[in-house]
């Protein structure tokens, strides 16, 4: 087999096979999008309205609870939540990607990667739609504050979005194959995701931990809050994507930037590393077990 032939005919069951089925991916994604918005009165408006409403509720509750003055808290909150919800929604849908398509997988041969991948991709499209909510909030602030909240930096959100997409793909593949063998994995997944949400600094800020650590040092106790902050900042990929996302959306509108919100090249490298590692893990396990799917679905 020549090299060109090898590229054209990727080995059966490999990830590269999805490129052969790219038209199918487009069909599956448009199907998901169409079905989501077809026959719903407000259609697209829902995917903007839903995050907006949640943002309003959370803004009210948390500015009351924490009483820390974060500038433009609604933008901070919405940006964080949008990013977290992308990974949450997409991996949750990808989890049942294989088990929802049993009839198809039993009757025809298709690259099995297609199903989790199409779920991740349609969630990605939803995510892009929900950026409309962010736009509205920034527009409102621009008017009320009398200064432009938008900047060219906003366009750089593409970087964390790509990282999160690759990360979600790996997570989705891993979960989808596990769900075939263990159907109760969804309950564990839900619990883990809730924990993950609280570890992701969506409605609080990491700066909180550092001021707490300063107090602890002053009191002479161990600064465990600083350790906690370190763990979240270095070992939570979603937080790393969120931080970059905020850096390009929220930070440009600030007059003074706190150290914890500052993004360095280390954040970018770490985020990319986590994304690629998760992707490799997901593909590895998926590939290893895909031949056995048929026996369990």
């Amino acid at each position: 087999m020549s090299v060109i032939e090898k590229i054209k005919n990727p080995p059966e069951g490999s990830f590269r096979e999805v490129f052969k089925y790219k038209d199918l991916l487009i069909q599956l994604v448009t199907r998901d999008i169409k079905l989501k918005y077809r026959r719903s009165f407000l259609g697209y408006v829902w995917s903007v309205l839903n995050p907006l409403l949640i943002m309003v509720i959370m803004s009210v509750v948390f500015s009351f609870l924490f009483q820390r003055n974060l500038a433009y808290f609604p933008i901070y909150l919405l940006a964080g939540r949008t990013m977290f919800e992308f990974v949450h929604q997409s991996s949750g849908k990808a989890l049942s990607g294989i088990t929802d398509n049993t009839t198809l997988l039993k009757k025809t041969y298709v690259s099995k990667f297609m199903f989790p991948l199409s779920k991740i991709t349609s969630s990605m499209v939803d995510f892009v739609f929900s950026l409309g909510a962010l736009f509205i909030v920034m527009l409102v602030f621009s008017i009320t504050e009398g200064k432009c909240m938008f900047s060219l930096w906003n366009l750089a959100i593409v970087i964390p979005i790509i990282q999160a997409y690759v990360f979600a793909m790996g997570l989705g593949f891993f979960l989808a194959q596990l769900h075939v063998f263990f159907r109760d994995i969804r309950y564990i997944y839900n619990a883990v995701m809730t924990m993950w949400m609280y570890c992701s600094a969506i409605f609080y800020d990491i700066g909180m931990f550092y001021s707490k650590a300063e107090k602890q040092i002053a009191q002479g106790t161990a600064p465990y809050a600083a350790h906690l902050a370190f763990i979240i900042e270095k070992f939570n990929p979603i937080y790393i994507y969120m931080k970059q996302f905020r850096y390009f959306i929220w930070v440009p509108s600030l007059d003074k930037v706190s150290a914890y919100a500052q993004v360095t090249s280390q954040d970018f490298l770490l985020g990319s590393l986590y994304a690629l590692a998760m992707f490799a893990i997901g593909v590895f396990f998926f590939k290893r077990s895909q031949d056995k799917f048929i026996l369990y679905i």
């Binding site: 052969k20 038209d23 069909q27 025809t108 298709v110």
Partner: peptide
Amino acid sequence: RENIYLNGCILGYSK
């Protein structure tokens, strides 16, 4: 109409 495209793609044909 949508199913014709979806099924065709499942069978491995281009749009």
